[in-house]
């Protein structure tokens, strides 16, 4: 079902945790969805010096979070902002179609963390979820 790359990240996730004095924090998803991703970043001289994630979710959710942190660590904010969920899925050698929506939100979480660092507003929680019913729209 999952590519070797997904399984490799799932088995050995990189950069787990939360940064204590994070410069920016972003969270997407909710427990009803079944996937929550939280990314925290430390930024110095416009470069993401450190990044950590915490994820509640399936194998794809964990693997996408892990590879996202790896892809942007050491990159400039500008470069990191360009990262899309699609790029993340591609870097993992693809994801099963049913995982493309719910479990592939790490780039969104990153974007929120960057926006938070830049002092910009981003809507909170999973944009595609109706919090009351828990149903995806």
């Amino acid at each position: 079902m999952y590519s070797d790359k997904v399984m490799e990240h799932f088995e050995n996730p990189r950069n787990i945790g939360e940064l204590e004095d994070a410069d920016g924090v972003g969270e997407v998803g909710n427990p009803t969805c079944g996937d929550i991703m939280k990314i925290s970043i430390n930024v110095e001289d416009d470069i993401i010096q450190d990044i950590k994630f915490k994820t509640f979710g399936c194998g794809a959710a964990i693997a996408t979070s892990s590879i996202t942190t790896e892809m942007v660590k050491g990159k400039s904010i500008k470069e990191a902002q360009k990262l899309t969920n699609k790029d993340v899925a591609e870097a993992l050698g693809g994801l099963p179609p049913e995982k493309m929506h719910c479990s592939n939100l790490a780039a969104d979480a990153l974007k929120k963390a960057i926006n938070n660092y830049l002092g910009l507003n981003g809507g909170d929680m999973c944009d595609d979820c109706d919090d009351k019913s828990g149903k995806h729209q």
Binding site: Y2, M7, D35, F56, G57
Partner: peptide, 30 residues
């Protein structure tokens, strides 16, 4: 605080076959 599919995958990596009622394993979003 944990999700069923990632639990199943970890068990599978240890050679243990189980199942879950998680949405991720039901083939639907619920």
């Amino acid at each position: 605080y944990i999700e069923g599919e990632s639990l199943l995958l970890n068990l599978d990596l240890k050679g243990i076959a189980a199942s879950s009622g998680s949405a991720c394993t039901s083939g639907s979003l619920d």
